[in-house]
């Protein structure tokens, strides 16, 4: 089933489209950094909670149910085949030949994998459900003409600090090994981070050319009409005495081809209509000077959400740095060895 935008006024709906895009990226990072099943389950749970506030629970569950099966297979694979060395051995799945060992670490990481994957996919779902497609399209469209040096600089600086902390936490040993005075060492690392963040900001602010961005928004708006049209065409053929769902597979293909022609013609007509409609309202007037009614503004809640995501990611790195990135596993192993 297609994921369609659902109207609403929940927290997720209130968030800026860009924030939701960042949440998705943030969760993806988080899923890489954090390997602990309980922390990931909490992240997943809070995301799901936000989701149920934003959209119809039934609808959400219906779409997620299929995914449960898929991700469960993933975690079974993890449990069975990707066992870390020196694991706490439990039993063999096939004892006679001592094949497929099941270990404590395997199970814990398997459960974590389930939540890690699921969180990422859920965040995409929530973004699509709670954001009008037009806003999403605008997010990735280049809209402002003037080069906003100050904002870009500020964002880059902030980003570079985050990168710097991550670098310190993650590549500590590598940095230690450099034979340089400590001050210079850290300065160099920071300079690299700054460069990296400048690059990211430049690329991110580039976006699609406006022609494509607007075309994308028009495309999204057409989906509803085309769906309606396809339904009408199918009905018209049924009413002509055409069995639209015959049991014979060969016949079914023939039916499809018969439906394709009118759908094709209708879609062609629609695109011609759109072309005429937008040209008649000045689409080709001066596309690079185009303005936009819809405005994306960050509100306080956006900054809060972004800060939470950043803290979570940094926290994850920090736990790994301290060597306690996997508290659940360590706790259970301690219990077992005691």
């Amino acid at each position: 089933m297609a994921i369609e935008f659902q109207k609403g006024n929940s927290l997720l709906h209130e968030l800026d489209a860009r924030t939701k895009l960042l949440i998705f990226i943030g969760i993806t990072l988080l899923a890489v950094v954090i390997v602990d099943p309980i922390i990931m389950a909490i992240v997943f749970g809070s995301l799901y909670y936000l989701g149920t506030k934003a959209i119809n629970k039934k609808l959400l569950n219906k779409n997620l149910r299929v995914l449960v099966v898929i991700f469960l297979t993933f975690s079974v694979f993890q449990i069975l085949f990707f066992t870390p060395e020196n694991s706490y051995f439990l039993f063999y799945l096939y004892p006679p030949a001592e094949l497929v060992p099941v270990t404590v670490q395997g199970i814990i990481r398997g459960i974590a994998v389930f939540f890690r994957f699921f969180s990422v996919v859920l965040s995409v779902h929530l973004m699509l459900y709670s954001t009008p497609p037009v806003d999403l399209a605008l997010t990735i469209t280049k809209r402002e003409q003037q080069f906003k040096l100050r904002t870009d600089l500020l964002v880059s600086l902030l980003l570079s600090v985050i990168f710097f902390i991550i670098a310190l936490l993650e590549f500590n040993q590598g940095i230690e090994r450099l034979v340089l005075p400590p001050f210079v060492k850290y300065l160099i690392v920071y300079a690299v981070c700054l460069l990296l963040s400048f690059l990211v900001v430049r690329i991110a602010s580039h976006g699609l050319p406006p022609e494509m961005g607007v075309a994308l928004t028009l495309g999204f708006a057409t989906v509803g009409i085309l769906t309606k049209q396809t339904q009408k065409i199918t009905d018209a053929q049924k009413a002509r005495g055409y069995d639209v769902q015959p049991k014979n597979l060969f016949k079914r293909i023939r039916v499809l081809t018969a439906l394709l022609l009118p759908i094709f013609v209708a879609t062609m007509e629609r695109s011609q209509d759109i072309a005429i409609a937008i040209l008649s309202r000045g689409f080709d007037y001066n596309i690079s000077k185009r303005t936009y009614r819809r405005q994306l503004i960050f509100k306080r809640i956006d900054y809060i959400v972004m800060a939470v995501i950043v803290i979570l990611i940094l926290g994850g790195f920090f736990l790994n740095y301290l060597g306690i990135g996997n508290p659940t596993e360590q706790f259970i192993l301690n219990l077992l060895s005691a």
Partner: peptide, 24 residues
């Protein structure tokens, strides 16, 4: 119906002025 190209009435009405670079 064939002339309506966006996904909300307000967007539809704004589409023309946007093309002419009218301020927000």
């Amino acid at each position: 119906e064939s002339q309506l190209v966006t996904s909300s009435v307000a967007d539809e009405v704004a589409f023309g002025p946007e093309n002419f670079g009218v301020a927000r």
